[in-house]
């Protein structure tokens, strides 16, 4: 991919200089490898936040705990919505790499919309929790809950920004089959954020406080 970019830039024939698809040592492009490495770091970030919540989940200081106000059916639905966005992400990549730009745009937009629905659900959830007496500063458990899920929400939001940037680029005709890998890399990030949510939903929502 990068080799093609160079030849496009220089107007040289690729074979003239022996460029090939695997000019890097590992065969992965730099950007894709960088995303994998970065996601490795993200694991520790969420690991730290999840550990903090698990330590504090029962420390209510005599006030309402997050676990007391969880609405499991509601969160299950929004979790399902987020998981479905991974499916549309895959479909987007598949469409772009087959050169079907129109379908690619549709699926990118669908992914962003599903992510947006999830974020909307989180905003609703947060406000209803605050109404029920669990605010950020209520007790250690609530601080840990809002920090963890808030960090995840920010990650999803950044993902939506990336998806919309891809969408705009595609509308302008700058996202084609040739740079489908960019969609794949954004997809890596998106799937990672989804997987983190599976952990959060299981560990935080489904395991009750003692």
């Amino acid at each position: 991919m990068s080799a093609e970019a160079v030849t496009a830039d220089l107007g040289h024939a690729a074979d003239e200089h022996g460029h090939d698809e695997h000019a890097t040592t590992t065969g992965l492009s730099h950007t894709k490898l960088a995303m994998w490495v970065f996601l490795g770091s993200e694991c520790l970030l969420f690991g730290g936040l999840i550990s903090t919540y698990l330590l504090y989940k029962s420390r209510g200081n005599g006030r309402t705990l997050p676990t007391d106000v969880f609405d499991i059916p509601f969160t299950s639905v929004s979790s399902f919505v987020l998981l479905m966005s991974s499916l549309t992400m895959v479909l987007a990549l598949s469409a772009v790499s087959r050169g079907e730009d129109e379908a690619g745009r549709t699926w990118l937009l669908a992914t962003a919309l599903l992510g947006g629905v999830f974020i909307g659900g989180q905003v609703y959830e947060f406000t209803s929790f605050v109404r029920e007496g669990v605010a950020f500063t209520t007790n250690p458990a609530s601080s840990a809950f809002f920090t963890l899920t808030g960090f995840h929400g920010v990650h999803v939001s950044l993902g939506i920004v990336m998806l919309m940037s891809l969408f705009v680029a595609s509308v302008k005709g700058k996202l084609t089959q040739r740079n489908a890998e960019t969609v794949e890399i954004v997809g890596l990030y998106w799937h990672f954020v989804d997987i983190v949510w599976i952990f959060i939903f299981t560990v935080i929502y489904l395991i009750p406080a003692d």
Partner: peptide
């Protein structure tokens, strides 16, 4: 968050560790 936004992560009075 504790210092600027009054979170309760390190406030032993509220049961933090």
């Amino acid at each position: 968050f504790d210092r600027l936004f009054d979170a309760q992560f390190f406030n032993p009075d509220a049961g933090a560790d």
